[in-house]
Each structure stands twice: as structure tokens, then as C-alpha cells.
Amino acid sequence: MEYLSIVFQEVYKILFLLVPVLVSVAMIVWLDRRVWAFVQKRQGPNVVGPFGLLQSLADALKYIFKEIIIPSSSNKVIFILAPIVTMTLALIAWAVIPFSATQVLADINVGILYLFAVSSLGVYGIIMGGWASNSKYPFLGAIRSAAQMVSYEVSIGVIIINVLLCVGSLNLNDIVIAQQNMWFVIPLFPMFVIFFISALAETNRPPFDLPEAEAELVAGYQTEYSGMMYAMFWLGEYANILLMCAMGAILFLGGWMSPIDVYPFTLVPGAIWLILKILLLFILFALVKAIVPRYRYDQLMRLGWKVFLPLSLIWVVLTASYLFYFNLLPVN
């Protein structure tokens, strides 16, 4: 009986977290298209509901009523598993995101490693989908994305080490609290820029959307998918983007902390600050999509391995030496 009540409590908490995340994923798709349209002097989706706010809902309804087509020569189990894996991995990562000092589903010691591990597992959804489709374009897209995500994870990992050197803890709440006096975006600004660009590559956003480059690969790993399975890929992708924005907000922009530690600002709950920071980062993501042309594949690899990795490694040495020389290392 005791177990049951614990389980019910946890399920309630999980629903309280997941439903807003899913709704905001739908809203964020609308925001993405609107920002993209405004940069190009178009209107964007503005018909369904006020300002077109319900556009994503209409799209979702359309996807639900479409037929799911499973190619006869595909590997059926893995074909069906792929969107499920993408979606699940995109959602379970939200368990450790702190919305305030106490509002966090699982306040684990190795929160940042968990986030990193889950985001590095995200590549499996794409590989599975691409391989199980048993078709040339999805397969090429899957191979490209595997190489791309593995490469950019390396630089994201090194950037996380930079932040951890300044914090001395792997707990996400400790990382946020360590930024009380100064957000890490100020001392580690170059790392923030590299993190932002790596996050674009990690989530397959333009200008690094080579796995689904429609000019070359039709739609990459999603080519054979239809109906709700396609929509799940698409939801998982946007949930991953939101997650990367949340990670950037926690690592560099002070998480749930208010920008100024003055009276009227501290009244606003931490969750609102975190959401505002995520939105700021997301609008930057959307602007990049509208402004920058797509990279060529060899340029992408060159950027990841020959520019970002050495730069972030050098910055690790610099940060460590600075902290050591001025005796600022966080020791407990």
C-alpha cells in the first residue's frame, strides 16, 4: 500500500512535468515557424486560432488521422521502435531539470552527466529509423547523423568540463547556485558560443541539418515515416531542442536564478525565469535557422574536430590554470 501511494505521487509529479513540456513543444513549433517567417518578411502560420497559435494542434490532429505506412521490406520491430526511442529519450531527460531550488523531479548527484548521457543516446532513434527503413536515403541520413552527433558530443562534453571546473559538483542545482554572483556566460563567453553552435549540430538544426537535408536526401531518416510516427520524430526533435536550450540556460545563464538579485525580480518564481531563458535561447535557434545557409558535410566535420575540439580543450587548460593560480578552485 505504501509503495502504491509513492507510485501515485510520482506519477502525478511526472504528469505535472510532462504535460507542460509536450504543450510547450507544440507551441514552440509555432514560434519557430513564426520567427522564421518574420525574418523572411512573411506572415507564417496565422489562420488557426488567434495569431495561429492553434496551428500545431491542427497539425497534430491531421497526423493522428493519417495512415501509418510500414514499408513491406523494412525491419518492422526496429522501424516502429525508432520514433518511440526518440520521443522517450527526449522526454526522460526533463526529470533532472531544476525549475527552482526545490522544484525538481529527481535531484540526483550526477544530474549533468545524466543529461549528457541521455542526449548522447538520442542518436539511436535516428540510426534505428534510418537502418530499419531499408532504403537508400534514410540510411545515408542515419550515417551522417551518427557521425555528426558523435563528433559534436565531444566538444559539448569538454565545454561541460569547463563549467564543472568552476562549480565543483555534478548536481544541476549546485551548478545554478554557483552562478549566484556571476553567470558563467560572462567568464566563459567563448564556451557559450561554442556550446550554442554545438547544440545546433547536436539537435540537427539548420545550418547543420544534414541528416535531413531535403535538397540531397529527400527527408533523411524520416523519408519512409508517415502519420503519427513521423509526428513523434518531429515532437522528439523539438523536445530535444528545448532540452538543449534548458541545458544552455542552466550551464551558462543562471538557470532559475533571476538576472538581478533585487526585490521585485526575486518575487518572480524560478520556473518563469528558466522558461524565459529557454525561450530566449530558442528564439536565437530560430533566427539562426532563418539566417544561415546549410553547411557542407566536410565543413561540418572540420568545424567540429579541427576548430571546436582544440578550442574548448585549450579553454579547459586556461580555466583550470586561472582557478588554480588565483586559488579559486571549488574544494569542499
Partner: peptide
């Protein structure tokens, strides 16, 4: 928990991807 997470990151996130590749 540290070993578990490192296992996920290193083996599942990187080594197995290259294997699959």
C-alpha cells in the same frame, strides 16, 4: 551512479554507435 552514467556515455553513446556504424 558515476560509473553507471560514464558507462552510458562512453559505451552506449560513443563506442556502440561506432560499432553500429
Amino acid at each position: 551512479e558515476f560509473l553507471g552514467m560514464i558507462m552510458l556515455i562512453v559505451y552506449v553513446g560513443a563506442v556502440a554507435v561506432l560499432f553500429l556504424f
